Simulated assay, not measured.
Amino acid sequence: MIGVHLFAGTPEIMGPILQVNLHPVIKATAMVIWHLATLLLALMTFGIAYLTKSRNAALSLFIILIQLSFAGLFLWYNITLFSGLFALPQWTIFLIVPALMGYAQLKDA
């Protein structure tokens, strides 16, 4: 997820934002939010890697809830702004990963 976010998403999303004439505070806010998303993806990746070695129900639930929240946001804006599901397809991965994590939790229980 991080690689796609950084190498495909940065030029596609941040490139145009940085090229248009926006107030510097708006550009800086967009950059901060972009990099916060990158950090969250990285931290969730490290958390999931940790969970492959050690059981931690609280960490697993936390990561699952973050990803489901991301999925919900993407779905909300797809439906309300685009009247469809796939203008912003990121929700799919944010449903697949927590589904697999939930399955792993149930399997190990």
Rank of each mutant, 00 (worst) to 15 (best):
M14G: 04
W34Q: 08
L88Q: 12
M44A: 14
I93C: 06
T52S: 15
L95G: 01
I26H: 13
V20A: 15
G15V: 04
W76S: 07
V20H: 13
Q19I: 01
T80K: 15
L65W: 05
T45Y: 12
S54D: 07
W34F: 15
I48T: 03
W91L: 00
V97Y: 09
G47R: 05
I93N: 01
G72D: 06
A58Y: 06
L68I: 05
L75R: 06
I26K: 01
E12R: 09
P98D: 14
H35C: 14
G9W: 11
M44V: 02
L68Q: 02
F86D: 11
Q90E: 11
P89W: 15
A109K: 04
S83C: 09
P89N: 14
R55Q: 11
H5Q: 11
R55G: 04
L65E: 08
L100H: 00
L59V: 04
P24S: 09
M101R: 01
S83F: 13
E12Y: 14
I96W: 04
F7P: 01
L68C: 01
T29R: 06
S83G: 13
W76P: 00
A30D: 05
F7Y: 15
N56R: 07
L73S: 06
W76R: 05
L100T: 00
V32S: 12
L85W: 13
I63P: 00
Q67Y: 14
A28L: 12
T29F: 07
A109D: 08
A8T: 07
A104K: 03
L51Y: 05
T92V: 03
L51V: 00
W34I: 03
D108A: 12
A30C: 13
T10P: 00
L100K: 00
V32W: 12
N56K: 09
F86Q: 09
V4I: 08
L88R: 12
I48L: 09
I13E: 10
G72R: 06
T45V: 03
M31A: 15
K53A: 10
E12V: 04
G3N: 08
L81D: 15
Y77S: 08
I66H: 14
A37C: 09
L36G: 00
I33C: 14
V32H: 11
D108H: 10
K27Y: 06
L85N: 07
T38N: 10
G102S: 08
L59S: 01
R55F: 07
A28Y: 12
F86A: 13
L39T: 01
P16H: 13
F82R: 02
V32E: 08
I2E: 10
W34C: 08
G9D: 11
K107A: 05
I93E: 11
F82A: 11
I17T: 02
I13L: 13
P11Q: 15
A57H: 08
I66A: 14
T45E: 08
K53R: 10
G15F: 13
A104D: 11
F62S: 13
K53H: 13
I63L: 02
A104V: 00
Y50V: 01
